[in-house]
Amino acid sequence: MNVQNLNTVDPFADEGDPLSGNNDVGSQQNYIHIRIQQRNGRKTLTTLQGLPKEYDAKKLLKAFKKEFACNGTLVEDEEMGQVIQLQGDQRTKISTFLTDEGIPRATIKLHGF
């Protein structure tokens, strides 16, 4: 009988970097930040920041625009690098899209209300 509790686990062993997959990205903590900003009236703007380098932001933007039926643009920021801007509140849609494409959920940070 296999008793799981008696398995020996070294508590001091290196558990490894959970984000080791995309370690080469120089952005802050490798998180993908999805934020929302209010515009005038009930309009909003969604920004996606910190996309790993192996993804082509331009193609992703195109896919977003088609999938979410919204407009959007690619903004170059001197600190944050390339930032995808989309019209409207697309936060949950973006995060489900990205997780469906195989980006781990732990690396995606959803901000805003």
């Binding site: 005038n40 703007l45 920041q49 903004v75 801007q85």
Partner: peptide, 13 residues
């Protein structure tokens, strides 16, 4: 704990 970071602010207005 992480410091509070504002992140990218899009041009609004």
């Amino acid at each position: 704990v992480n410091a509070v970071k504002t992140g990218f602010q899009a041009q609004v207005g």
